[in-house]
């Protein structure tokens, strides 16, 4: 199981959490579910690692939290993006695209050369 779980780059988890919250406020379990779902089950978070990230983001004022009642009438803590969090997320996305494009370019280039020889 550990092997299947894509190891997350440092700082990537924070970005994924912010992304997951982009549409609507969610509770912690919801966030893990959403990331798993979106990543087609490749990114199975060690769920525990989520909570330090949530508290960290809240401390950095990128997200805020409030207690709400779920459909099943249970109290849960819902996290939502702050305006600053939104800004941060779009910055991060730009950064990430640049990075991943760069990494892809490198990988492709290696393949082409490999093909040529």
């Amino acid at each position: 199981m550990a092997k299947e779980r894509g190891d997350l780059l440092q700082g990537t988890l924070d970005m994924l959490v912010l992304k997951a919250l982009q549409l609507e406020p969610m509770h912690g379990w919801g966030i893990t579910e959403r990331i798993e779902q979106w990543s087609e089950s490749v990114l199975q978070l060690g769920q525990g690692t989520l909570y330090p990230a949530l508290y960290r983001l809240e401390r950095q004022a990128l997200i805020r939290s409030e207690w709400r009642v779920t459909e099943n009438n249970r109290r849960a803590r819902y996290y939502s993006l702050t305006p600053e969090g939104r800004r941060h997320l779009s910055d991060e996305l730009v950064q990430w695209r640049r990075m991943s494009r760069a990494v892809n370019l490198v990988l492709e280039a290696t393949l082409n050369r490999g093909g040529a020889s």
Binding site: G28, Y51, R74, R77
Partner: peptide, 14 residues
């Protein structure tokens, strides 16, 4: 106590 409740909720959901 909030953290405790949150984690309990998480485990219950799972």
């Amino acid at each position: 106590s909030g953290l405790d409740e949150e984690i309990r909720f998480h485990i219950d959901q799972q």
